[in-house]
Design a protein around this nucleic acid. Sequence first.
RNA 1: GGAUGCGUAGCUCAAUUGGAUAGAGCACCUGACUACGGAUCAGGAGGUUUGGGGUUCGAAUCCCUACGCGUCCA
Length: 592
Amino acid sequence: MHIESIIKTYIQSALQEIYNVAEETILLQPTKKDFEGFYTFVTFPYTKSLRKPPVEIGNSLGQYLVEKSGVVSKFNVVQGFLNLSIAESAWIEALNTLALDPNFGFSAPNGQSVMVEFSSPNTNKPLHLGHLRNNFLGDSVSRILKANGYDVVKTCLVNDRGIHICKSMLAYAKLGNGETPESSGLKGDHLIGKYYVLFDKEYKRQIEALVAEGKTKEEAEKKAPWMLEAQQLLLKWEQSDAETIALWKQMNEWVYAGFNDTYQKIGVSFDKTYYESNTYLLGKDAVDEGLAKGVFFQKSDNSVWIDLSAEGLDEKLVLRGDGTSVYMTQDLGTTDLKFADFHTDKSIWVVGNEQDYHFQVLFAILKRLGRAYADGCYHLSYGMVDLPSGKMKSREGTVVDADELVAEVTAAAAEEGNAKGKIDDFSEAEKQKLFSMLGLGALKYYLLKVDPQKRMLFNPAESVELHGHTGPFIQYTHARTRSVLRKAVQMGVEWSKPAATVPLTDSEKEVIFCLTQFPERVADAARNYSPALISQYAYELAKAYNTFYAEVSILQEPNADAQQARLLLSQAVADGIQKAMGLLGIEVPERM
RNA sequence: GGAUGCGUAGCUCAAUUGGAUAGAGCACCUGACUACGGAUCAGGAGGUUUGGGGUUCGAAUCCCUACGCGUCCA
């Protein structure tokens, strides 16, 4: 049993025996650095029910714990804070159990399944920085849920139809001259993106021309020839016009090849991909069902609505008067489809917070329709990524391209790596692999260390930073532990067995304490759908180890028991860092 | 107009969900033994937590209010 739960159990029995009070949950917190001890129990909340001053409660509980628990060696009381120090034998025992358990921190299957939908790109342009936050979040949350025992299905819904695709298609048909990814040397998604931009340029020119002729801006936007043609193209697509479909398929193929390349590079994959072109007509059954059940109502123009004022929301359109879908219609249909396909207990949508309202409405409708799965639906809403220059706008060309960014961070890692000269014996391929591991580590960590809910600022200089609170700092610490362990093997020292109780320095206790926190953090990260909690943990662990590393000698320690304990500790830290970073989708190197 | 989120050191972020003297990194300053990896470590400086009021043993956190920034719904 872990130290923390032992203490909690004894506090419960102490409250029972001394004050005759039954308390179900005991909250412990780490002791602040300025005080002695590792765990703190706050007694203020009990002063009323026990009718005793906080200090007295602290003293009697502390005494009880020292006498009976076996893990608390001493205590001190400051006002309502009971600070507990832990016996060295307890630290060693904790280290032994966690270091020798390969699955420490991870849960066995819990019989529950969850679907995580993320990425969800448009096929008219390449992935950008915003997608990266989305992808890294979705991927990491999937890993975290899996570590908590869930059976996870990763899905991606590709937005592959609609007016925006037709814009790229039109520009390509007019200006493409048969250009292909091969002929142009452009990645497929970038090639398509280029024509999307070309469309926009010409479209703007046409609007200006019409405005010059005296039309209002609104009129001009609607009447610009290319816009009319794009709409024409969408109509043809919907009527399955052979030539249009052929062009659409060709261009999609190029885009998907480009996306796959990027996904592979950033280490993201999906179990199932849905395409809007297959699902955009779904949802009308749900609308009929809602009308029959009296959940929806029809207005005089035949449009279908739901009144959600009871939920604190407005009336919301679910089907247009002419019978065509809105986003909500499609989402109703797609959600039914997803649950029918996989029968998961939960479903999570990783989508930006600009769609908070949309998901509130969607979930409210699902409940009204009586969907059994409605309670398992969750919108993982994340904040936008801002640039120092302000918000990213694809039309204004202020987007940060994902592929370029990955190349930049890799180059930055290569520059520093080559300068250090520690891996001169690596082959070119090994070096490339390492630099991409470090570059991606920096980028992923940079985007994941911030609370997902919060809006964040992307600073290009900081994203390629390799020192301080960064991924590479943690990767470095891992390489360091591996280096020590390699040398220990060379020296013929054996450490993979339970360590004996030896005197411990504060820094050693600090590291063990940090290691014992891992399972709780993993559970916390799943509860809050927050990889940031894992990032924070990995950083704390690395810092604690580096402090320890600077303070005591491992390989030159004369006492064999002490040396073995330190090696076991190093092993546990190496494993802990690897696991924590693994939950973020970040690999760690043996050397760097 | 209605709804909703945010505001913490010069900058980027934390704060165990109401706990102690609000912590890290970057940038700035000082120091680290012929040591196991210096992509490191130890230390310094930097704060009226946007302003004002309230709730209580205790508030960055909860409530009210003003201001600022963002997003959504028409």
